[in-house]
Design a protein around this nucleic acid. Sequence first.
RNA 1: GUGGCCUUGGUGAAAUGGUUAUCACUAGAGUUUGUGGCACUCUCGUUACGGGUUCGAUUCCCGUAGGCCACCCCA
Length: 446
Amino acid sequence: MPKIKEPKLGKSQTAKTVQLLRGFKDILPADQPYWQFIRDAVESFAKGYGFAKIDPPILEEVNLFTRSIGKQTDIVEKEMFSFTDQGEGNVVLRPEATASIARAYINHGMVNLPQPVKLYYWGPMFRRERPQSGRQRQFHQFGFEILGDGSPVIDAQIIAIISNFYQQIGFSQISIHINSIGCPQCRKVYLSELTAYYRSKRKLLCEDCKKRLVKNPLRLLDCKNPSCQFVKNEAPQIVDWLDDECKSHFMKVVEYLDELNISYKLNPHLVRGLDYYTKTVFEVFPSDKEESSQSALGGGGRYDGLVEILGGRPTPAVGVAVGIERTISQLRQKEIKVPDTSSPQIFLAQIGDQAKIKALNLFEQLRKENIVVAENLSKDSLKSQLELADKLKVKYALILGQKEVMDGTILIRDMESGVQEIIDFKKTTHELKKKLNNQLNSVIQS
RNA sequence: GUGGCCUUGGUGAAAUGGUUAUCACUAGAGUUUGUGGCACUCUCGUUACGGGUUCGAUUCCCGUAGGCCACCCCA
């Protein structure tokens, strides 16, 4: 066992407060309705579009990412939480999930399933970056991946899913950018063209672009520095250098999107930071006013080479990944109301020892009937119990006291009107169900 | 990794180089124990951590950690 430093006790004998790790956050009970809202939407989409869930592990071998995302990318170069485990080998907290999905596809012989294989995932990802708005070191993504089909209609479908998803959760203004970065062959030709062009303009470039020119020329296209804009606007565009295959693929994708009535913007400057992308790439923004890369809600594209890079048979694939925190922050900003399904409608209050025992049993009985009841059986005064009922904003309070126990009855109090009825204790569940159903019906009617 | 601003109870704020750090909200306990949303009382802080300057620091300085924001890059 490695030695663990004990926290020093201060003069006051209390231990120093333990802080959260930089860039890590607790997802608190108050946040959960948002998470649940998105989770429900994702699950219903997965079901509707025929995706099966997969949960790859959070820890993976470092090679998985150096081979897939690319050694030269920032994610791999400086943002991975990697460490040596006590045994052997380098392990890494996954920075994204697509590579794991491709690995799983190979590992479990999914080539033998009817193609394409449609998978979705949900979970935490880790990148060791400096935190800022819309960026944490642990964040969550969900994603949809379709492996084993190279047809452009699949690209369009993935984009349709994400577009419809955001419509569904109440984002009416989203903006989808799409582009094609070709296959490795035509991209190679294009890259030499692009670097030749930029080299001729080298003197005009910002410092960052000079670095990009050597390191990752594709990224030159999304430089935000105003001084580079002119150079950028005149730069050769990849769509003009796509080979016939890639060009017709891209045109078909666009055609299908038109057919599905999905609005998008062709963005010749859109490139993505992971090496495995081929052909179609796209990004989703909350509105056309916020289209900087930090505000991207999600993105994806085709990755026809990935499975092969990881040692599988050549398998075309497309996918999309969505940032959940970013989506939630937009839900909040747009003040989209999300349902809070967890809050109880009933509070059970008791007075006196006998009533407490009876309440204990009643609570269990109601729970078995799937009636969500709040209580605080350790509190004795009715006043404080009703106070709590009020704070929980329940619709009804059940009141069980000495008198009711003797009479075999129970009180149902309507918390809004203050009207109370005495009912037969045995009919408690029946009455509650009746009341809750009435309420439900009136909500549906209005 | 670079830069800017910031850090006072659970939350949001206030204040001062000098005895018990103020207020509001929240939470808990209570106002003699069968009725909530009001009111009142009480309780909850070594002023992020470490060091320095000083007779004296929460206040000034430095470091560390964390937060926010921007760049790089990404979701």
